[in-house]
Design a protein around this nucleic acid. Structure first.
Lengths: 106, 106
DNA sequence: AATATATATCGGCATTTTCCGATATATCTA
DNA sequence: TAGATATATCGGAAAATGCCGATATATATT
């Protein structure tokens, strides 16, 4: 009987990762300073706000908002509301758990 | 500039993993002796044949054949034809590479 | 309160995925 | 060669996903 560190819905996680734009976003969020220099003024403490991600991705605001929700439902990112902005950042624990999951369970 | 050990199409791999039945198949193939005892007579050297997997999954033959093809296109399994049977087994190198990919690139 | 800005949600069209039944192909056996 | 068995491929209906534009909601500003 395996022990699960966190209750990842595996299918949901892999579905979230099954899209080129969502993979790009995750990759960009690895280096916010590098990929979102426009946000330097506001800092990167809570990640990057939706509008910046949307600009870089070149898709509509609604699409990016939904993509970020999907990533969050899968546990791959976390969000912080600050005023009228929502900041998203990677949940590195989830990636460590996923890497581990693939090694041991899948 | 990152160096890729193998040319995985990331989206294709994650799509292949985005289905409960395909995840089950991969999991079953970790312990063929345990999960496919009916095949003991023929041995497990090349993995498990399509019919046995189909029986256990409870979906149609065509569906399982297509699922196995998808897993193979993604590089997650390899197949061996022996007479009228096609045996499928996990490609453990791919899982190691994927685990690594998640740790370092994604 | 009124307006502006940032994000989320809704409705919808186009494409992809899921899974099926039918059929084609490959191999084995009589 | 004919028939049986195992697998692959094809065509299609239903559901899910990819994106969009329009609209709703939350917060900030005047």
């Amino acid at each position: 009987m395996p022990i699960y560190i966190c209750a990842m819905d595996q299918v949901e996680v892999f579905k979230a990762l099954s899209n080129k734009t969502r993979l790009q976003i995750l990759n960009w969020l690895k280096s916010p300073e590098l990929n979102f220099p426009e946000q330097a003024v506001y800092g990167y403490d809570n990640g990057v706000c939706v509008g910046q991600i949307q600009l870089k991705a070149g898709l509509t605001q609604s699409t990016i908002s939904e993509y970020l929700s999907a990533l969050q439902r899968a546990g791959l990112v976390k969000s912080t509301r600050v005023g009228q902005w929502t900041y998203y950042q990677r949940n590195e624990d989830a990636f460590a758990a996923l890497s581990q999951l693939i090694q041991s369970e899948i």
